[in-house]
Amino acid sequence: MSGARDTILGSIRKSLKRGPLSAEQAARLEHRLKTPRANVIPARARVSGRRRTDLFVDEAERVSTTVARVADAAGVPGAIASYLAEHNLPATLKVAPDPALKTIPWSEKPVLSVVEGRGEDGDAVSVTGAFAGVAETGTLVLLSGPEHPSTLNLLPETHIVVLRRDHLVGSYEDAWALLRVMGRGMPRTVTMVTGPSRTADIEQTLQLGAHGPRRLHIVLIGGAEDDAE
């Protein structure tokens, strides 16, 4: 298809009435790509501390995500068990093989049966971590990888995300900055999830749970107290 490639690039240049970019112009583009610059960031995203947490929770709840707040990892099994009981959901969890989730004392709630692995059809409830939570729109940023199979975000009816409060950021740009600091490039997928799956394709009436999870629940660690920052 090199013929097609040359034709298309040639046609673009012909329409723009120029040849290939000069070395200097190309260097300018390269510089723009190497030093990404933020555009306008909404004021609402530029918050920190407790206000950021509150914004994240408010925005998440606006899109039908539910949020429970616990003081530390030890509180997670209890929060999950009561969420499942409240919604009459099975207590069998498919948990992501994430080192951070391994520190959770699951055995303290024997009612929970925990299996590690990727998501499969028929899984009722999955538990994963999250790379970040973006307060601006209550959005979770999930990276695929060995410790986070992306099928866990999609196949189960209920997706529970364990998120540390210090992983909350204000804007999408903040999340990109974190990703760059990590220095591992882009994983296969970076998925920004804002609420449970939905559709309004039938008469514009909103229905949750189109193809992905019907429920999205966040257990926010460190969200209960500590106003400092």
Partner: peptide, 23 residues
């Protein structure tokens, strides 16, 4: 649609990586 953000916005980069369980 008047949403602040659509539910799923995925940045997809290449095929499955070594160690990935899916993709």
């Amino acid at each position: 649609t008047g949403q602040e953000m659509s539910v799923y916005t995925t940045f997809c980069t290449g095929p499955r990586r070594s160690g990935d369980a899916d993709g």
